[in-house]
Lab assay of single mutants.
Amino acid sequence: YFQGQLNAMAHQIQEMFPQVPYHLVLQDLQLTRSVEITTDNILEGRI
Rank of each mutant, 00 (worst) to 15 (best):
Q12A: 12
L24P: 02
P18A: 04
T39N: 03
Q3W: 07
L29T: 01
T32V: 02
Y1R: 11
H11I: 12
G4L: 14
T32H: 06
D40G: 14
L29V: 05
L6E: 03
L31Q: 11
A8G: 07
V25Y: 03
Q5F: 12
L26A: 03
V20D: 02
A10H: 02
Q30P: 00
Q3N: 10
P21S: 08
L24Y: 07
V25E: 01
T32R: 02
A8T: 10
E15M: 15
N7K: 14
A8Q: 12
A8R: 07
F2A: 10
A10R: 03
Q27H: 09
E44F: 14
H23Y: 13
E15H: 13
L29S: 00
L29I: 07
I42M: 04
I42V: 05
T32I: 01
Y1D: 15
E15R: 15
T38V: 02
L43K: 12
L24T: 06
I13V: 09
D28P: 11
L24R: 06
V20C: 09
Q5H: 11
F17S: 01
S34F: 03
H11N: 09
Q3D: 14
Q19A: 09
H23F: 11
Q12I: 13
V25H: 00
N41G: 02
Q12L: 12
Q3E: 14
Q12H: 11
V35S: 06
T39M: 13
L26I: 11
D28M: 07
N7G: 09
L31R: 13
V20Y: 09
G45V: 04
I42C: 05
Q14K: 12
L29Q: 00
T39L: 12
Q14I: 13
D40Q: 15
V25S: 01
Q27P: 00
I37H: 08
L43Y: 06
P21Y: 05
V25G: 00
H11D: 09
P21M: 06
Q19P: 02
R46K: 10
V25Q: 00
A10C: 05
E44P: 01
Q27A: 13
Q30C: 13
M9Q: 06
D40H: 15
V20T: 05
G45M: 06
T39V: 15
P18L: 04
Q19M: 12
A10E: 01
S34R: 04
I13M: 04
E44M: 14
L26Y: 11
A10Y: 05
P21T: 05
F2C: 11
L29E: 00
R33I: 07
